[in-house]
Amino acid sequence: MSSGDLPATINSGKNEFLRHIVLGAAALAMIYPLLWMFLSSFKPDELIFSDPTSLPTSFGLDNYYKGWTALRESFTTFYLNSFIVSVLAVIGNLLACSLTAFAFARLEFWGRKFWFAMMMGTLMLPYHVTLVPQYVLFLKFGWVNSFLPLIVPKFLAVDAFFIFLMVQFFRGIPREIDEAAIMDGCGPWRIYWKIMLPLSTPVLATAAIFSFIWTYDDFLGPLIYLNDIKTYTVPLALRAFVDSSGGESLYGALFAMSALSLVPVFIVFLAFQRLIIRGVALGALKR
């Protein structure tokens, strides 16, 4: 990661060194648990619990092979499902939330404040409230056991967090730009599509990354709506690994697959993290 976007700071060498000590210690504490999981993924099952702090004796990929095919379908299927759902959710969220946010940030209409309050109110809903009525609804639509209940709501902008984030960002874009466009005869659609969206890459990227990560990690939705194991997403498959009612447990394989499941989100995060920071930046501070 380059440091080119950082503000110039007056840094004495000593301070710099101290900071690295603090950061290094914090970083170690942060990732120790993950390191443990990663190392455990190379150990045979018996050793994971009986001797939890030992280092693995070899770095064979047995647990990875075993884990990939431990369930009836291989993880190829689960990853594919997860990607389909996550990518479509990202597209849905970006389109629907930005449309909504544009209306709240830039358009004048009757009841704007009221709808905005309603939108913010949905943030507070505990999701178990709507679980059963929503299930019944999707069942009536004939959507259960498909990805539709996981995707369609995103195209209808149910994630108020992203709307809020975008509203804040849009408000930060100087009004002079769209006022000039109106003078040139641009309608709201063109302003949204040709001016706002191109200027909003950071917040769009932020929303994209968060919605990718959250959809990818979501467990309750897939649990409720997916029936057939062929349609399982990665977190649902991971849950199937261990069961307390007895039977063989595959902890080594579980850790192997859990470690692996982190890779896609981590890559996405690494690739776009600089955009995230700018995406949040302008909005929240409103300058």
Binding site: L6, L23, M30, D217, L238, L254, F269
Partner: peptide
């Protein structure tokens, strides 16, 4: 601390964010 530090910010930032990516899982 991250805001001031010059070298390796991206690295630390990623490390610090890693646990938040894990979501809720059996692991």
């Amino acid at each position: 601390v991250l805001d001031r530090s010059v070298r390796g910010v991206g690295f630390y930032r990623a490390i610090f964010y890693l646990p938040s990516l894990l979501g809720a899982s059996v692991a």
